[in-house]
Design a protein around this nucleic acid. Structure first.
Lengths: 144, 144
DNA sequence: TATTAGATTATAATCTTTATAATTAGTGTA
DNA sequence: TACACTAATTATAAAGATTATAATCTAATA
């Protein structure tokens, strides 16, 4: 089924007229299989073995392209670097204040907030983001 | 009333045992009166006139201290630098995709999302953030 | 007013991300 | 399959934001 998602994503790339290079394929595949939400550098390091000559710029370029097409989302939290996430299903994130772990959780999309914001501000709303913060199970246990 | 908020904030600083230096006072005052959500650099530039010798590091240090005390929030959006906001009332932000303008809008706090996330993930929830994105009035008008 | 710990300054270093120019390589077509 | 065209990659440098360091200064307290 991960295979299926990869094939779909590649079809989307083709439809957009974007070339499918080995590096681009690898970045996409890595993101699709990632259980976490890696930074650009983490992706770079993970693919270094397979592509010893790959440039960091290539990772950034591909992430930008994948973002423009809508296959990938960029998440910015308080820390120094952005994280990237395959844009698959409707879910939000909960983030541990202590260790930084990011866990998905599903919740119906907050359409009501969007429409209210639209009315009040006069904006033409496109989307929203929501993150919940707290302390994860592990970090609660190892309190002292 | 802005005076009132400033006095309250300074009391909070004193209670926390944090020294009230002229620079710190100025950063806090600037943030309290700011209608927008400035970056560290914008704060630095705004106070340059009053404190010609002030270092950028001082702005960052003070923002960190104010954040730790809970007087200030750090907002990270897609763009390169963080924005800072006095932590006053319950409100969310809507951000223009085109020009980057940030406008406040009020909405009851999404407590339900927090409690659901808590149940599903086992996290001990502390807070959440929500931003809505779209195109502001001006940017809608100057479409072409 | 003197003391002292904390704050500021000046500077450099670090880290993330973007820009540039030259080279390489996908992809559609003959 | 080979060619041509253009986008993608590489290598490198540059930019920009933030943090670290050490010396100097100063707010708060007795």
């Amino acid at each position: 089924m991960s295979e299926e998602r990869l094939r779909e994503a590649i079809d989307t790339l083709k439809e957009s007229g974007v070339r499918i290079t080995p590096q681009r394929h690898a970045v996409l595949e890595y993101l699709l299989n990632a259980m976490v939400h890696p930074t650009a550098d983490e992706i770079y390091k993970a693919l270094e073995g397979k592509f010893p000559n790959m440039s960091v710029a290539t990772v950034y370029n591909n992430l930008r392209v994948l973002k423009e097409i809508g296959l990938v989302r960029e998440l910015t939290y308080g820390d120094s670097s952005s994280r990237f996430d395959c844009n698959t299903s409707d879910h939000y994130h909960i983030i541990c204040d202590a260790c930084g772990k990011i866990v998905d959780f599903h919740y119906p999309s907050l359409d009501e907030v969007e429409s209210l914001a639209e009315q009040v501000t006069g904006f033409e709303v496109s989307h929203h983001r929501l993150e919940v913060y707290g302390k994860c199970d592990e970090c609660q246990t190892q309190k002292h």
